[in-house]
Design a protein around this nucleic acid. Structure first.
Lengths: 214, 214
DNA sequence: TAGATTGTTAATCGATTAACAATC
DNA sequence: TAGATTGTTAATCGATTAACAATC
């Protein structure tokens, strides 16, 4: 009986950011209301699925008219917690880390990378895309003082697990893991693995199918 | 009756690259055989799921021993088509495009980015991480001459659809889309959308749940 | 009003998990 | 041999899709 409150399906959560972008797009076109059918047509989904997904927000659509774009947009952002900014640290200032430091779209997702950390002492004190790089041993203290809960992990694969352990020890509660296909963390810590190879695998297989049986 | 041959579940396909990494890891430890149980323990999955996933390959495991690591590794790579190199073009040599050009892990995935293209004439002829940047209008001819089928799309969001149309017109069959949450293409062309915001959405929601109900 | 769209409840579909005989 | 592990068939679980009354 416990444990199940109203778990929103993971696929739904993954589609929500796309709805945000679609709503922004349609707002740009001067629209004020949008129906689930419009969104579904635009994205190649079914209207029923879109309506189910949007039901995670408390926003009610109006029959024959649809949803108020701004209101829906605000509600989805709020559901994702993207209406307030969360500060995060980036760990591993290599090429991928640097690229992410230079990405300026995170504020749209309620995320701000406050600082970067690297094991290489030669990077200490440097700025990458305006973010200061600190020595990794400064991390626990700064996590504590700034109340940081999220880390973006972009170290080399071999360093991933050890580094994750340090992050957990320092009090990090969520790890956005670009470093390794899998890391082990204690319960109470959330890991989101990002792995570019997954998408490429899907593309590879689908393309092979298409080319075989056209 | 048509159409369904033996569709491998998408979640399975997405897990396959991770199995490759795990097999490499275990090979490094000097192991020769690995059981589905070992892999499952390592990744936090169930042994049954791992066995089901591995059944997409023709490799048979040996009861009590497991699977021959090298053989299984080769079979998964073969299933994904990653045993032969596929040449691809990257379109959009901005910060994300440059970062991907500098990523040297693609050969593990059977992908080689042969060249980059950009609409900005000032980039023409430049080299980024050893890859030459061509003008976008050279793309159709080069796609044709080199028989390129895959494009990595890393242009700004607003240019994504127009650029995708050009790629399709040029004969590209698979688009790995980092540019926009959604693009429309004709049937016969495969699109794989990569969207960093999806993973962050999952992390955000899971973390919020954890912090609310610890 | 008629018809498009909503939200909800039920049916279907697909993936995961369980059960179990076969095997080394 | 006993026991761990395999591969397969059946049961369960969860997400998607369908059906439909309510509404503007």
């Amino acid at each position: 009986m416990l444990k199940k409150i109203t778990t929103v399906p993971l696929p739904t959560i993954r589609r929500l950011p796309t709805y945000l972008r679609v709503l922004e797009e349609m707002r740009k076109w001067g629209k004020e209301y949008v129906s689930a059918t419009d969104i579904a047509d635009y994205l190649g989904l079914t209207p029923i699925q879109v309506r189910k997904d949007l039901a995670v927000t408390p926003i009610q659509g109006k029959p024959k008219i649809g949803f108020e774009i701004n209101e829906l947009h605000r509600a989805i952002r709020s559901f994702l917690g993207w209406d307030k900014t969360t500060e995060a640290f980036l760990v591993g200032a290599g090429s991928l880390g640097s690229a992410l430091l230079g990405y300026n779209g995170f504020d749209e997702y309620g995320l701000n990378i406050a600082a970067a950390f690297d094991a290489n002492p030669r990077l200490e004190g440097m700025e990458i895309h305006g973010k200061t790089v600190f020595s990794l041993d400064k991390l626990p203290d700064l996590v504590n003082r700034m109340g940081i809960r999220i880390a973006v992990l972009t170290v080399p694969r071999d360093a991933a697990q050890e580094c994750a352990d340090q992050l957990v020890a320092a009090g990090i509660k969520g790890i956005w893991n670009f470093a390794s296909p899998h890391i082990t963390v204690p319960a109470g810590v959330v890991v989101q693995n990002e792995n570019i190879a997954q998408g490429l695998a899907v593309l590879s297989v689908k393309l092979a199918e298409k080319l075989e049986v056209p």
